[in-house]
Simulated assay, not measured.
Amino acid sequence: MADIDGAFNNAFPLVGDADIDLIRELGFVIEDFLAAPYRVNAEPDIAPNVPDGTVQHWQSSDNYNKNLLVFDGFTEPPEIWLRYADGWAGGPGATFSGDVIGRLVLSGYYTTGGAAYALRPTSLRAEATENWSSTSQGSRAVIATTPNGTATPVDALFVDQDQSVLAKGGIGYVSGKGAGGTVTQLTSRTTGVTLNAKSGRITLFSGAGSSAGQTFALTNNKIKATSNLNMNIAGNPAGVYYFGVKIQAGVAQITVFNPGNNNEQPVLQFAVIETAFD
Protein backbone atom coordinates (compact mmCIF):
# COMPACT_ATOMS: atom_id res chain seq x y z
CA MET A 1 0.00 0.00 0.00
CA ALA A 2 2.84 2.39 0.78
CA ASP A 3 3.92 2.66 -2.87
CA ILE A 4 0.45 3.57 -4.15
CA ASP A 5 -0.23 5.87 -1.18
CA GLY A 6 3.05 7.66 -1.79
CA ALA A 7 2.33 8.00 -5.49
CA PHE A 8 -0.99 9.68 -4.80
CA ASN A 9 0.58 11.99 -2.23
CA ASN A 10 3.16 12.96 -4.80
CA ALA A 11 0.45 13.50 -7.41
CA PHE A 12 -1.60 15.66 -5.07
CA PRO A 13 0.89 17.53 -2.87
CA LEU A 14 -1.64 20.07 -1.61
CA VAL A 15 -4.27 19.01 0.90
CA GLY A 16 -6.86 21.08 -0.87
CA ASP A 17 -6.34 19.26 -4.16
CA ALA A 18 -8.11 16.10 -3.06
CA ASP A 19 -9.47 14.15 -0.15
CA ILE A 20 -6.47 12.17 1.10
CA ASP A 21 -8.66 9.55 2.78
CA LEU A 22 -10.49 8.92 -0.48
CA ILE A 23 -7.17 8.67 -2.29
CA ARG A 24 -5.97 6.12 0.22
CA GLU A 25 -9.20 4.15 -0.15
CA LEU A 26 -8.77 4.20 -3.92
CA GLY A 27 -5.24 3.00 -3.46
CA PHE A 28 -6.44 -0.01 -1.48
CA VAL A 29 -8.97 -0.83 -4.20
CA ILE A 30 -6.30 -0.65 -6.91
CA GLU A 31 -3.87 -2.72 -4.87
CA ASP A 32 -6.48 -5.40 -4.24
CA PHE A 33 -7.28 -5.48 -7.95
CA LEU A 34 -3.66 -5.96 -8.90
CA ALA A 35 -2.90 -8.49 -6.17
CA ALA A 36 -2.16 -12.05 -7.32
CA PRO A 37 -3.88 -13.83 -8.78
CA TYR A 38 -5.00 -11.17 -11.21
CA ARG A 39 -8.14 -12.54 -12.89
CA VAL A 40 -9.61 -11.97 -16.33
CA ASN A 41 -12.93 -13.80 -16.20
CA ALA A 42 -15.58 -13.83 -18.90
CA GLU A 43 -17.87 -15.33 -16.25
CA PRO A 44 -17.26 -13.08 -13.24
CA ASP A 45 -19.64 -14.99 -10.97
CA ILE A 46 -17.44 -18.08 -11.18
CA ALA A 47 -14.11 -18.12 -9.37
CA PRO A 48 -12.73 -21.66 -9.31
CA ASN A 49 -9.74 -22.44 -7.14
CA VAL A 50 -6.36 -21.85 -8.71
CA PRO A 51 -3.01 -23.29 -7.60
CA ASP A 52 -1.04 -21.43 -4.96
CA GLY A 53 1.30 -18.88 -6.45
CA THR A 54 -0.92 -18.12 -9.45
CA VAL A 55 -0.15 -14.67 -10.86
CA GLN A 56 -2.90 -14.47 -13.49
CA HIS A 57 -6.06 -16.47 -13.98
CA TRP A 58 -7.99 -16.37 -17.28
CA GLN A 59 -11.45 -17.91 -17.62
CA SER A 60 -13.61 -18.27 -20.72
CA SER A 61 -17.35 -17.71 -20.88
CA ASP A 62 -20.02 -20.40 -20.95
CA ASN A 63 -20.74 -19.81 -24.64
CA TYR A 64 -17.93 -22.09 -25.83
CA ASN A 65 -15.37 -19.36 -26.32
CA LYS A 66 -12.28 -21.47 -27.01
CA ASN A 67 -9.82 -18.72 -27.89
CA LEU A 68 -8.65 -17.55 -24.48
CA LEU A 69 -5.30 -16.25 -25.65
CA VAL A 70 -4.22 -15.54 -29.21
CA PHE A 71 -0.71 -14.41 -30.17
CA ASP A 72 -0.13 -13.07 -33.66
CA GLY A 73 3.36 -12.81 -35.11
CA PHE A 74 4.53 -10.92 -38.17
CA THR A 75 7.88 -11.53 -39.87
CA GLU A 76 8.96 -13.45 -36.76
CA PRO A 77 6.86 -16.18 -35.08
CA PRO A 78 5.39 -15.41 -31.63
CA GLU A 79 7.06 -17.09 -28.66
CA ILE A 80 6.02 -17.99 -25.14
CA TRP A 81 8.93 -18.22 -22.73
CA LEU A 82 9.07 -20.22 -19.51
CA ARG A 83 12.30 -19.18 -17.77
CA TYR A 84 13.87 -20.65 -14.65
CA ALA A 85 16.85 -19.75 -12.49
CA ASP A 86 18.02 -21.02 -9.12
CA GLY A 87 18.17 -18.49 -6.33
CA TRP A 88 15.56 -15.71 -6.12
CA ALA A 89 14.35 -12.72 -8.12
CA GLY A 90 16.93 -10.39 -6.62
CA GLY A 91 19.77 -12.88 -7.04
CA PRO A 92 19.19 -15.45 -9.80
CA GLY A 93 21.59 -18.38 -9.85
CA ALA A 94 22.77 -20.75 -12.56
CA THR A 95 20.57 -23.64 -13.65
CA PHE A 96 21.94 -27.01 -12.57
CA SER A 97 21.62 -30.48 -14.06
CA GLY A 98 18.26 -32.01 -13.13
CA ASP A 99 16.50 -28.67 -12.62
CA VAL A 100 13.02 -28.43 -14.16
CA ILE A 101 13.19 -25.43 -16.49
CA GLY A 102 9.45 -25.18 -17.17
CA ARG A 103 6.29 -27.27 -17.22
CA LEU A 104 3.10 -27.11 -19.30
CA VAL A 105 0.22 -28.79 -17.43
CA LEU A 106 -3.06 -30.00 -18.95
CA SER A 107 -5.74 -30.80 -16.39
CA GLY A 108 -9.36 -31.87 -16.20
CA TYR A 109 -12.11 -31.66 -13.57
CA TYR A 110 -13.58 -34.46 -11.48
CA THR A 111 -16.51 -34.67 -9.05
CA THR A 112 -16.30 -38.25 -7.76
CA GLY A 113 -14.47 -38.31 -4.44
CA GLY A 114 -14.62 -34.53 -4.15
CA ALA A 115 -14.81 -31.79 -6.76
CA ALA A 116 -11.52 -30.34 -7.95
CA TYR A 117 -9.20 -29.96 -10.90
CA ALA A 118 -6.59 -32.72 -11.19
CA LEU A 119 -3.19 -31.51 -10.04
CA ARG A 120 -0.92 -32.60 -12.89
CA PRO A 121 -2.44 -35.52 -14.87
CA THR A 122 -0.65 -34.74 -18.13
CA SER A 123 2.35 -32.48 -18.50
CA LEU A 124 5.23 -31.52 -20.76
CA ARG A 125 8.34 -30.29 -19.03
CA ALA A 126 11.91 -29.38 -19.87
CA GLU A 127 14.85 -30.41 -17.69
CA ALA A 128 18.47 -29.39 -17.65
CA THR A 129 20.84 -32.29 -18.33
CA GLU A 130 24.01 -30.49 -17.29
CA ASN A 131 25.09 -27.47 -15.27
CA TRP A 132 24.45 -24.48 -17.50
CA SER A 133 26.96 -21.95 -18.76
CA SER A 134 27.12 -19.66 -21.79
CA THR A 135 28.33 -22.58 -23.92
CA SER A 136 26.71 -25.62 -22.22
CA GLN A 137 22.92 -25.69 -22.00
CA GLY A 138 21.93 -29.35 -22.38
CA SER A 139 18.26 -30.18 -21.90
CA ARG A 140 15.65 -32.84 -22.48
CA ALA A 141 11.84 -32.90 -22.85
CA VAL A 142 9.67 -35.22 -20.77
CA ILE A 143 5.97 -36.01 -21.25
CA ALA A 144 4.14 -37.43 -18.22
CA THR A 145 0.77 -39.17 -18.37
CA THR A 146 -1.51 -40.81 -15.81
CA PRO A 147 -2.43 -44.51 -16.27
CA ASN A 148 -6.10 -45.46 -16.18
CA GLY A 149 -7.40 -46.25 -12.71
CA THR A 150 -4.75 -44.15 -10.96
CA ALA A 151 -4.27 -40.53 -9.96
CA THR A 152 -0.47 -40.54 -10.10
CA PRO A 153 1.26 -39.25 -13.25
CA VAL A 154 4.34 -41.10 -14.46
CA ASP A 155 7.04 -40.04 -16.90
CA ALA A 156 6.17 -41.71 -20.20
CA LEU A 157 8.23 -40.24 -23.04
CA PHE A 158 11.73 -38.75 -23.06
CA VAL A 159 13.42 -36.80 -25.84
CA ASP A 160 16.98 -36.59 -24.56
CA GLN A 161 19.77 -34.08 -25.14
CA ASP A 162 21.32 -36.40 -27.77
CA GLN A 163 18.01 -36.55 -29.71
CA SER A 164 17.40 -40.13 -28.62
CA VAL A 165 13.79 -41.06 -27.81
CA LEU A 166 12.81 -43.37 -24.96
CA ALA A 167 9.27 -44.51 -24.19
CA LYS A 168 8.42 -46.49 -21.07
CA GLY A 169 5.56 -48.09 -22.97
CA GLY A 170 5.54 -49.22 -26.58
CA ILE A 171 6.49 -46.94 -29.47
CA GLY A 172 3.24 -46.56 -31.39
CA TYR A 173 1.80 -49.92 -32.27
CA VAL A 174 5.16 -51.61 -32.80
CA SER A 175 5.42 -53.08 -29.33
CA GLY A 176 2.73 -51.33 -27.33
CA LYS A 177 0.21 -53.10 -25.14
CA GLY A 178 -2.27 -55.03 -27.26
CA ALA A 179 -0.06 -54.96 -30.33
CA GLY A 180 1.43 -58.43 -29.96
CA GLY A 181 0.24 -61.99 -30.33
CA THR A 182 1.28 -65.63 -30.10
CA VAL A 183 1.12 -68.63 -32.38
CA THR A 184 2.40 -72.22 -32.25
CA GLN A 185 3.91 -73.96 -35.26
CA LEU A 186 2.33 -77.34 -36.00
CA THR A 187 3.46 -80.49 -37.84
CA SER A 188 7.08 -79.51 -38.61
CA ARG A 189 9.70 -76.75 -38.58
CA THR A 190 8.73 -75.87 -42.15
CA THR A 191 5.00 -75.43 -41.48
CA GLY A 192 3.80 -71.86 -42.07
CA VAL A 193 2.10 -69.79 -39.37
CA THR A 194 -0.21 -66.76 -39.47
CA LEU A 195 0.00 -63.93 -36.95
CA ASN A 196 -1.29 -60.50 -37.95
CA ALA A 197 0.48 -58.41 -35.31
CA LYS A 198 3.29 -55.88 -35.13
CA SER A 199 5.08 -58.06 -32.58
CA GLY A 200 4.72 -61.57 -31.32
CA ARG A 201 6.06 -64.93 -30.19
CA ILE A 202 6.20 -68.01 -32.40
CA THR A 203 6.61 -71.32 -30.58
CA LEU A 204 8.47 -73.49 -33.08
CA PHE A 205 7.63 -77.16 -33.65
CA SER A 206 9.25 -79.52 -31.18
CA GLY A 207 11.76 -81.33 -33.32
CA ALA A 208 15.33 -81.57 -34.45
CA GLY A 209 16.98 -78.54 -35.98
CA SER A 210 19.13 -78.38 -39.08
CA SER A 211 22.48 -76.80 -39.83
CA ALA A 212 21.32 -76.45 -43.46
CA GLY A 213 18.35 -74.37 -42.34
CA GLN A 214 14.60 -74.94 -42.17
CA THR A 215 12.31 -72.36 -43.79
CA PHE A 216 8.72 -71.49 -42.90
CA ALA A 217 6.40 -68.63 -43.90
CA LEU A 218 5.13 -66.06 -41.40
CA THR A 219 1.95 -64.61 -42.93
CA ASN A 220 1.38 -61.20 -41.37
CA ASN A 221 -0.62 -58.33 -42.87
CA LYS A 222 1.41 -55.82 -40.81
CA ILE A 223 4.52 -56.59 -42.86
CA LYS A 224 5.22 -54.25 -45.77
CA ALA A 225 7.76 -54.72 -48.51
CA THR A 226 9.85 -52.02 -46.82
CA SER A 227 9.58 -53.42 -43.28
CA ASN A 228 12.38 -54.81 -41.16
CA LEU A 229 11.88 -57.89 -38.97
CA ASN A 230 13.76 -57.92 -35.69
CA MET A 231 14.01 -61.42 -34.15
CA ASN A 232 15.54 -63.31 -31.26
CA ILE A 233 15.09 -66.58 -29.37
CA ALA A 234 13.43 -66.21 -25.97
CA GLY A 235 14.80 -67.84 -22.87
CA ASN A 236 17.97 -69.90 -22.88
CA PRO A 237 17.61 -72.98 -25.11
CA ALA A 238 20.48 -75.43 -25.32
CA GLY A 239 20.89 -74.99 -29.08
CA VAL A 240 22.43 -72.09 -30.98
CA TYR A 241 20.09 -70.46 -33.52
CA TYR A 242 20.67 -68.20 -36.52
CA PHE A 243 18.11 -66.61 -38.80
CA GLY A 244 17.70 -65.60 -42.39
CA VAL A 245 14.72 -63.49 -43.44
CA LYS A 246 13.20 -62.59 -46.80
CA ILE A 247 10.55 -59.85 -46.66
CA GLN A 248 7.61 -59.48 -49.00
CA ALA A 249 4.38 -57.54 -48.54
CA GLY A 250 2.25 -59.55 -46.12
CA VAL A 251 4.70 -62.41 -45.58
CA ALA A 252 8.20 -63.15 -44.33
CA GLN A 253 10.14 -66.28 -45.25
CA ILE A 254 12.11 -67.20 -42.12
CA THR A 255 14.95 -69.69 -42.25
CA VAL A 256 16.13 -71.09 -38.92
CA PHE A 257 19.64 -72.52 -38.73
CA ASN A 258 20.42 -74.79 -35.78
CA PRO A 259 23.95 -76.23 -36.14
CA GLY A 260 23.58 -78.36 -33.01
CA ASN A 261 20.51 -80.15 -34.40
CA ASN A 262 18.91 -79.96 -30.96
CA ASN A 263 15.55 -81.59 -30.44
CA GLU A 264 13.76 -78.82 -28.56
CA GLN A 265 10.92 -76.29 -28.91
CA PRO A 266 12.36 -72.76 -28.90
CA VAL A 267 10.24 -69.59 -28.91
CA LEU A 268 11.02 -67.04 -31.60
CA GLN A 269 10.18 -63.43 -30.77
CA PHE A 270 9.76 -60.83 -33.51
CA ALA A 271 8.91 -57.16 -34.02
CA VAL A 272 7.99 -55.50 -37.31
CA ILE A 273 9.90 -52.24 -37.64
CA GLU A 274 9.13 -49.66 -40.29
CA THR A 275 12.04 -48.12 -42.14
CA ALA A 276 12.61 -44.37 -42.01
CA PHE A 277 11.61 -43.77 -45.63
CA ASP A 278 8.35 -45.75 -45.27
Rank of each mutant, 00 (worst) to 15 (best):
residue 214 Q to I: 05
residue 191 T to R: 04
residue 42 A to C: 10
residue 208 A to Q: 14
residue 136 S to N: 14
residue 104 L to S: 11
residue 275 T to V: 05
residue 232 N to E: 11
residue 234 A to F: 08
residue 53 G to T: 01
residue 54 T to Q: 06
residue 239 G to V: 04
residue 169 G to S: 15
residue 233 I to N: 10
residue 131 N to E: 00
residue 76 E to H: 13
residue 241 Y to F: 15
residue 228 N to E: 14
residue 134 S to W: 03
residue 10 N to M: 02
residue 17 D to G: 09
residue 184 T to W: 04
residue 120 R to P: 01
residue 144 A to T: 04
residue 4 I to F: 07
residue 249 A to L: 10
residue 180 G to T: 08
residue 126 A to Q: 13
residue 272 V to D: 09
residue 277 F to H: 06
residue 73 G to P: 10
residue 39 R to Y: 06
residue 142 V to T: 13
residue 99 D to I: 01
residue 243 F to K: 05
residue 258 N to K: 02
residue 55 V to S: 03
residue 125 R to I: 00
residue 231 M to S: 06
residue 78 P to D: 05
residue 213 G to T: 07
residue 141 A to I: 08
residue 42 A to V: 05
residue 173 Y to E: 08
residue 19 D to K: 09
residue 200 G to K: 07
residue 20 I to K: 12
residue 178 G to C: 06
residue 123 S to Q: 09
residue 100 V to R: 15
residue 249 A to V: 04
residue 181 G to D: 12
residue 69 L to D: 00
residue 196 N to A: 13
residue 59 Q to M: 14
residue 57 H to M: 08
residue 70 V to R: 09
residue 110 Y to G: 07
residue 146 T to S: 02
residue 90 G to V: 03
residue 138 G to Y: 03
residue 262 N to V: 15
residue 192 G to K: 03
residue 175 S to G: 15
residue 185 Q to M: 11
residue 4 I to S: 05
residue 3 D to N: 08
residue 38 Y to A: 05
residue 104 L to G: 09
residue 270 F to D: 05
residue 133 S to L: 00
residue 63 N to S: 14
residue 277 F to V: 06
residue 75 T to C: 03
residue 94 A to M: 09
residue 53 G to F: 02
residue 223 I to V: 11
residue 252 A to H: 09
residue 68 L to N: 15
residue 80 I to C: 07
residue 222 K to A: 09
residue 244 G to W: 08
residue 127 E to F: 00
residue 168 K to A: 09
residue 179 A to E: 14
residue 52 D to C: 05
residue 121 P to L: 04
residue 168 K to W: 13
residue 252 A to S: 10
residue 49 N to S: 11
residue 136 S to I: 04
residue 274 E to T: 04
residue 158 F to R: 14
residue 43 E to L: 11
residue 238 A to Y: 04
residue 221 N to S: 15
residue 78 P to K: 00
residue 115 A to I: 06
residue 134 S to N: 09
residue 33 F to E: 01
residue 52 D to W: 07
residue 61 S to A: 12
residue 37 P to A: 03
residue 163 Q to M: 13
residue 83 R to N: 14
residue 108 G to Q: 02
residue 202 I to W: 02
residue 206 S to F: 07
residue 145 T to H: 04
residue 274 E to G: 12
residue 166 L to R: 10
residue 246 K to S: 10
residue 63 N to C: 04
residue 183 V to A: 03
residue 85 A to L: 01
residue 142 V to Y: 09
residue 207 G to V: 11
residue 129 T to K: 02
residue 72 D to T: 08
residue 257 F to D: 06
